[in-house]
Amino acid sequence: MDNNQKPKLAVWKFASCDGCQLTLLNCEDELLAIADKIQIAYFPEATRAVVEGPYDLSLVEGSITTPEDKERIQKIREESNFLITIGACATSGGIQALRNFKDVKEFTSIVYASPEYISTLDTSTPIADHVEVDFELRGCPISKAQLLEVVNAFLFNRRPNIPSYSVCIECKRRGTPCVMVSQGEPCLGPVTQAGCGAICPFYNRGCYSCFGPKETPNERSLSRQFVKMGYTNEDLVRAYRMFNAQSDSFRKESEYYEE
């Protein structure tokens, strides 16, 4: 297909580790099919060639942590017909949102020789706190299969098959015995959104909630069970403050056990 007839894709980076963009590059075989259907117009991690906006589809990775980025995302939104955020940073503020619970100035004064050169916000926040987002793809990093599904759904103008229910359903579908019940592993799977294919329980580990809270999560009930299993309030705070610490329900739960 002629490049000019294809929808234009842009991939944007904010505060993040690049892992989610790499997921797109890791598509390998499918990448050729994507390039056949979509014009990769802006994707600095893949190519220096830049095609001017506006863009039909923008994939946004990373969270908002600087005054400049707060401005930049507004411009990207204006230039994008469809804006999809990818990964825990973009959808919930990421692991860097741990700063939200502390004093950032204290950090910069300890870490940097000349902290006055550092221009940063007090918080790390998800993209949806700043602009309207059309779809959020969870995960740290996102799943390749889910990314392809979202791109696919966009191409054919249909709703993506991205469930918001628990990781438990994925465990059961692949026949993994519950690690919490059978091994006493603390597992965040019952409050975490599916999408990873329940990797950690398959390898006898509890879920760390890379994909963040599921629909209608009940953290308090799960926390009480962790306490019964012998875990401390401090353990609970750490469990909820990982990749999705700023997610509304996880943040509230960690704050409850911090007090």
Partner: peptide, 27 residues
Amino acid sequence: RCLSCANCTMVCPTCFCHTVEEVTDLE
């Protein structure tokens, strides 16, 4: 107390509910 995690229905030997999904390839 309920986590709405669906574990009870997944392990239940008579819970039979399923959904249907369509998938397409990129082409």
